[in-house]
Simulated assay, not measured.
Amino acid sequence: MTVRLSRIQLALFFILLCPVNIIGLWWAVGSPLVMDPNSICRKAKRLAGKQAELCQTQPEIVSEVAKGARLGVRECQYQFRYRRWNCTSHNKYFGKILQQDIRETAFVYAITAAGVTHAVTQACSMGDLLQCGCEATRNRAPPRPPSSSSSSSSSSSSSSSGDGVKWEWGGCGDDVEFGYEKSKQFMDAKRRRGKSDIRTLVDLHNNEAGRLAVKLYMRTECKCHGLSGSCTLRTCWKKMPHFREVGDRLLERFNGASKVMGGNDGKTLIPVGQNIKPPDKQDLIYSDESPDFCLANRKTGSLGTRGRICNSTAMDISGCDLLCCERGYREETMVFEENCLCRFHWCCVVQCKKCLVRKELSLCH
C-alpha cells in the first residue's frame, strides 16, 4: 500500500531531528528545507486549508508546532532508548518507518501530536503568543479541596473546604484547549481528499490519543494566602502534566496497542482477533506487524542492533540477549572525556576540569 504523507508533516518530522546549528537538510524526496517556519511553509506546496491558513496568518504558531514536534521525538528517543528500534534520528531510515502502519509509527504520531499540544499551550502560558494566554476560569466550577470526595456543581468562582479554607481559581492556568485545537488543526489535515483510507483513520486516531494524553491529565496546583503564613485562602490553577508523564503514559499504550483492520464502510476500524475489545480514544492502534529490527534493512527502515550498547546482566529489553537478537555481544573498554573536579567560584561560575574515564561496555555483535 502506498502511503502519502503531507509535505508539511514530513518536513516537521525531519526538521525536529536536526541539530540547532544545521541550517538546511534534504528530506526523503530531496527537497531542501530550512528550519525557519516561514520557509517550511513556502517549501510545502500541498498544504490543506487549515495548515495553509496557519502558515499565512500565524507563523509564530508554526514555530511552536516545530518545537513541539522536536519535543515529541526527543521523548520518543528516551522512551525507546533500550529497544531494538530506538527512534533513530537517521533521516532516511526514519522516513521509512513513517511510511509503515506499525506500532512504532503509532507512537511517533501520538507523541508528536502530544508534543505540539504541550508546546503551544506552554507558549500561551509564557506569554509568547498574542493569540492566547492563561486559561479563562470565569465559568468553571470551583476547585475541589483534596479532602473532598465529591466535586462541586456550583458555578461560582470560589468555594470552602470543611476546614474553612476558601478556594478560588487564579494564577495562570494552562489553556490546554487552545493547544489542543492548534495541534488538531495542524496534525489532522487529511492527506487524501474524498474517501477515507485505513491509514488516514489510524493516524487520526493516534494523533487524538496523543493529544488526550495531555488534555485529560491536567493537574490542579494551589498556593496558600493569609497573614503570618496562615492558609485562609488558596488560589488554584490547572497545569499540564510533565511531558515525561505523557511519554510514560503513551508507552503503556504502545505496549498494549491494538491491531485493527478497516471496516467495509471505509469509515470504521475493527479490532483484529477474537474477544478483543474495541480500542478507546486513548489507545494506540496499528494495522501492520513490525519488523524485528534485528538487522539493517533499508526497505523497512531498520538500522539493526549491531554495535548497540546493551546490559549484560539485565533480563529486560535492555539485556544483551534481547537487544542483540541472540547474536551475542563483546566487551570493550571505552574512554570518555567527562567534567570532573568542579568548583564553584563566587559569584557565580562553576569551573571544571576534563578527566578521561574508562568504562567497560557490552556491544552487540
Rank of each mutant, 00 (worst) to 15 (best):
residue 111 I to G: 12
residue 111 I to R: 11
residue 112 T to Q: 10
residue 112 T to D: 10
residue 113 A to L: 12
residue 113 A to N: 11
residue 114 A to D: 12
residue 115 G to D: 07
residue 116 V to G: 07
residue 116 V to F: 07
residue 118 H to Y: 14
residue 120 V to E: 06
residue 121 T to Q: 06
residue 121 T to A: 11
residue 122 Q to C: 08
residue 122 Q to F: 05
residue 122 Q to E: 14
residue 123 A to M: 04
residue 125 S to I: 02
residue 125 S to Q: 02
residue 127 G to L: 00
residue 127 G to P: 02
residue 127 G to E: 01
residue 127 G to A: 00
residue 128 D to A: 02
residue 128 D to S: 02
residue 128 D to W: 01
residue 128 D to Q: 01
residue 128 D to V: 01
residue 128 D to I: 00
residue 129 L to S: 00
residue 130 L to W: 03
residue 131 Q to K: 08
residue 132 C to E: 07
residue 132 C to L: 06
residue 132 C to Y: 06
residue 132 C to H: 05
residue 133 G to M: 05
residue 134 C to D: 10
residue 135 E to G: 09
residue 135 E to I: 09
residue 135 E to W: 11
residue 136 A to E: 14
residue 136 A to N: 15
residue 136 A to F: 09
residue 138 R to H: 13
residue 138 R to W: 14
residue 139 N to K: 13
residue 140 R to V: 13
residue 140 R to F: 12
residue 140 R to H: 09
residue 141 A to S: 14
residue 141 A to I: 08
residue 141 A to C: 13
residue 142 P to Q: 05
residue 142 P to D: 06
residue 142 P to G: 05
residue 143 P to N: 04
residue 143 P to Y: 01
residue 143 P to S: 07
residue 143 P to L: 07
residue 143 P to D: 10
residue 144 R to L: 05
residue 145 P to W: 03
residue 145 P to I: 08
residue 145 P to R: 02
residue 146 P to E: 12
residue 146 P to I: 11
residue 146 P to M: 04
residue 147 S to I: 10
residue 147 S to C: 07
residue 148 S to E: 05
residue 148 S to Q: 02
residue 148 S to C: 04
residue 148 S to A: 07
residue 149 S to F: 01
residue 149 S to L: 03
residue 149 S to R: 01
residue 150 S to W: 00
residue 150 S to I: 01
residue 150 S to R: 00
residue 150 S to Y: 01
residue 150 S to P: 01
residue 151 S to G: 03
residue 151 S to M: 04
residue 151 S to Q: 02
residue 153 S to F: 13
residue 153 S to K: 05
residue 153 S to H: 09
residue 155 S to Q: 13
residue 155 S to G: 13
residue 156 S to Q: 14
residue 157 S to P: 07
residue 158 S to V: 09
residue 158 S to Y: 13
residue 159 S to A: 14
residue 159 S to H: 03
residue 160 S to E: 05
residue 161 S to C: 06
residue 161 S to P: 05
residue 161 S to W: 00
residue 161 S to A: 10
residue 162 G to F: 05
residue 162 G to R: 03
residue 163 D to M: 02
residue 163 D to K: 01
residue 163 D to A: 03
residue 164 G to Y: 04
residue 165 V to I: 15
residue 165 V to Y: 05
residue 166 K to Q: 15
residue 166 K to W: 09
residue 167 W to F: 15
residue 167 W to N: 08
residue 168 E to Y: 08
residue 169 W to Q: 10
residue 170 G to R: 08
residue 170 G to N: 10
residue 170 G to Q: 09
residue 172 C to D: 03
residue 173 G to M: 03
residue 173 G to S: 08
residue 174 D to G: 04
residue 174 D to E: 13
residue 175 D to F: 06
residue 175 D to A: 09
residue 175 D to Y: 07
residue 175 D to C: 07
residue 176 V to K: 04
residue 177 E to F: 10
residue 177 E to W: 09
residue 177 E to I: 11
residue 178 F to G: 08
residue 178 F to S: 08
residue 179 G to I: 13
residue 179 G to Y: 08
residue 179 G to E: 11
residue 179 G to F: 06
residue 180 Y to M: 13
residue 180 Y to C: 07
residue 181 E to K: 15
residue 181 E to C: 07
residue 182 K to S: 08
residue 182 K to V: 15
residue 182 K to M: 15
residue 183 S to I: 12
residue 183 S to L: 13
